Amino acid sequence: MSTAGSLYVIGLGPGDPKMLTEQAKIALRQSQVVIGYQGYFASVQDIVQEKECIALPLTQETQRAQVAVDRALQGEAVCVISSGDAGIYGMASLVLEVLEQRTANVPCPEVAVVPGVSAVNACASLLGAPIGHDFAVISLSDLLTPWELIEKRLKAAAEADFITVLLNPKSIRRHWQYGRAQEILAEHRAPETPVGLVRNAYRSDQSVTTTTIAHMTEPMVDMLTTVIVGNSQTRCWQSRMVTPRGYPVAETP
C-alpha cells in the first residue's frame, strides 16, 4: 500500500449477496473504512461489521466521494460502495473527479474500480435475452441531465433501432417523462414490440413483467424499475424476450 493509502470503488450488484463478485469481497476485506448509502450496507453486513462504516444519505454523493478521498490521503484503506456496477451511473466517476482535483500536487492513493453486476445485466437475465444486440442505456432522471438532452438521446436511440434500456423511469416528482419516452420510441417501433419491466431484480420482492410498447405505461413503474424496450427484431418466446444477434439458426432435421 502506498503512503497515501488505497481507494477502492466497488459495485455490489443488484443486492443479492450471491451476486457479489469475489474481487469485491477481497476489496471490502482489505479496507479499513467503508463509505456508502445506508441501504447498501445490508447485503455486505457480514463482511463490514468489524470495520468503520460511514453512511451518508442519498443526494450526498459528493460528500461521500470527498470523505473517501480525505481518508485515503491520510493513509487509510478506503472502500466506496455502489449498487450495481460502480462505473454505470455509480460512484466511480465522481470519486475519480474528486481525486483528480485533490491530488494535483500530492501523491495519489492506489486506486481500483471493481466491477459489479449492473441493473442492466441483472434485469436482462430475468427477461431472457433482450439485449443480444446493440443497445442504449438512458436514465430518464433529469436531476443532473437536462430533459432536452435526454429526449435527444431517446430520439437518436429510437431512430437507430437500438434496444433501449430505461433507468429511473418515474418518481413521485417525475411522472410525465416516462410517457413521453414511450411516445418517442413508439414513433419508430411497431405497437407489438416487446417490452420487459423488472423491479428489484434478485431481491425478495422482485417482479418481472412483459408487455408491449403500446401498453408499457400501464404496469406500475417507479425508480426501482428497469424497462427494456426491444428493437424491431425482438420477439417473445415462452414469456422471455429474445433479440437475435444475427447468427443463422439451422432447422432441426
Rank of each mutant, 00 (worst) to 15 (best):
G84D: 10
A65N: 08
L94W: 00
R199P: 04
S93D: 07
L20P: 04
G90S: 09
P146M: 05
R203K: 05
A27T: 11
A42I: 07
G230Q: 11
T103S: 10
V165F: 02
D46K: 09
Q182H: 13
I150H: 10
A186C: 15
P194E: 02
L28D: 03
I54Y: 08
L56Q: 13
L140N: 09
V106P: 14
E110L: 11
A156K: 01
N105E: 15
L167H: 03
V195S: 08
G13P: 00
T209S: 12
V117E: 07
E97G: 12
H188D: 10
L154D: 01
S93R: 09
H175C: 11
L94H: 06
V117M: 12
M19K: 10
T212E: 12
A129G: 10
I26Q: 10
H175S: 13
V113K: 03
T145I: 02
S239I: 11
A104K: 14
Y40T: 04
R240C: 14
A77L: 07
N121P: 08
V208Y: 10
I213V: 15
L94F: 07
T193F: 05
L56P: 11
R64E: 08
G84N: 14
V195E: 06
T145C: 07
R102L: 00
N105F: 15
L140W: 11
S6G: 06
V114P: 03
A214H: 15
G13L: 01
Q63M: 13
S125C: 15
I138D: 01
G15V: 06
I163S: 05
L56H: 10
A119W: 07
Q49Y: 06
C236H: 03
A92M: 01
Q66A: 15
S118H: 10
V120R: 06
T212L: 12
V137W: 02
M223H: 14
S43E: 03
P17D: 00
S2H: 13
S93Y: 09
A119K: 03
H175F: 10
L96I: 13
R203C: 00
A129E: 00
Y89P: 05
P248M: 10
G39N: 09
S232G: 06
Q177K: 11
A119E: 04
P109L: 06
L28Q: 03
C79R: 04
L140E: 11
R199Y: 03
R173W: 01
V80H: 00
N231Y: 00
S6W: 06
I228W: 06
V249K: 14
M216C: 11
N168S: 11
M223L: 15
L58G: 11
V208A: 12
V44S: 01
G36T: 07
T217K: 07
H175P: 00
R203H: 07
A24L: 08
L224Q: 02
Q74V: 11
A92T: 09
V195M: 05
A158D: 01
E22F: 13
A72E: 08
A158N: 04
E159L: 01
I163D: 02
A250P: 13
T225Y: 09
S6V: 00
G90L: 00
L7I: 03
S93Q: 10
R174H: 12
S239W: 14
V208E: 09
M1A: 06
D46G: 02
I184M: 13
V198I: 12
A42L: 04
